[in-house]
Design a binder for these strands. Sequence first.
RNA 1: GGUGGGAUGGCCGAGCGGCUGAAGGCACCGGUUUUGAAAACCGGCGAGGUUUGCGCCUCCGGGGGUUCGAAUCCCUCUCCCACCGCCA
Length: 428
Amino acid sequence: MLDIKVLRENPDAARAGAIKKHMPERAAAVDRALALDQELRAMTPRIDAMRSEQKAAGKQLGKLSAEEREAFLQQQKQLKAELQVLEDEERELRRKLHEELSLVPNLPDEEVPEGKDDSENTEIRKVGEIREFGFEPRAHYDLGEAQGWLDFGRAAEMAGSRNYILLGDMVLLHDAILRFAVDLLVERGFTPIDPPLLVRDAAMFGTGFFPGGEEQTYRCEKDGLNLIGTAEVPVTSLHSGEILKESDLPKKYVARTACFRREAGTYGKDTRGLYRVHQFQKVEQVIVDVADRERSLAHHRAIVRNAEDLLQACELPYRVVNVCGGDLGVPQAMKYDIETWMPSRQSYSETHSASRFYDYQARRLNLRYRPEKGKPLFCHTLNNTVAASPRILIPLIENHQNEDGTVRVPECLRRYLGGREVLGRPVF
RNA sequence: GGUGGGAUGGCCGAGCGGCUGAAGGCACCGGUUUUGAAAACCGGCGAGGUUUGCGCCUCCGGGGGUUCGAAUCCCUCUCCCACCGCCA
């Protein structure tokens, strides 16, 4: 959520921000919010004065004579009735204002490129060599099924499309990459955390997924709970409603959780294999720190670096892209995606997403800290993937496959696989 | 699923229907003392809105009611906790 003051002072920027994000209907919320704000500000002084009068009146009551008293009470009754009408109005206006303000997207940073969708993201850097295979490389689903590592048929049978079953060494590899990701971040000072996967609406709202993301979310209606699509939701919400000590910041967390996404509206897209699935495991890094733009930028560089280091350790070629306005979500100010080379897709495809929000989420979450001097301020928040699996298994097994269908294990993962250097048997 | 108890400032915690934005403690900040630190003592210290400023207004989980007047009484919702039952 943006500060209403930002809207007052610079409504054009708020509108332009929503337009840059290709969210015209949300740009309209800027004007609705401002209209409500103006109405509210017009009535507030009047209500204040009436309340002030009421308060003062009560204190004089005792000094009055019996006759005076009666007229006085009559007068107070009337004041109260009038006040009540105005207060109802005020409350309703406040509610509507909050609703509209919640719809206004975070301002995209200047450096966010113009563009309507991911095809217009701009490349920041490309790292690693794309491997020249001396043979026809196989897609992970062909290779995996041949090895008995993947079973999509039975998964679909019992759970529907976009589901998968990992078996044998693929389970171990899946676990290895996730554990490696956690260890890497713990080594860098992040606190591991294992949060709830089912959360209340407040957490979904606070992180900016609601309103808007309901269709992407599995919901347990009976209990009013939502399955998280990312650990960002519970972890960023962790200190919601608190005023943290500045000396306790930054808070740096690394969470490994299951994630659930309905993938509504993606029919026919990425239907094969492990790329787009309803359920996966993700190691996520989340940072909460003081409201300082420079520090947010530094954290952003650091969390991107963490992910890049993991990919480099896994010997995977990737590129970093600056996500354009149209591909940016409602709460983000800026986002770098990391795309890892996937031979079967013949493309760099998204495996990581590093976002910064400034105080947008913190304001919605009522997440503050007490600075050395002055009033409490809203924190800044950031997050990035460290590793999401099984998606990361695609580049891992495709890029490291051998002609016979076995897969070379990169050095960094061997310790998690009993020292094994190769997975699978020759099957081709 | 059943039955109770609770929700007050950064934290803990008191609070008779008006004198309570709220005792007390802790934490924090400033000072005295000390070679330094601790302790002790003195002082300060909630959040939000509005105003150039003085100030004014709001806030004791949310909403409603009773009352001239509610943190305090009543209703309701949300949340938390405890115990019993069931179960991983």
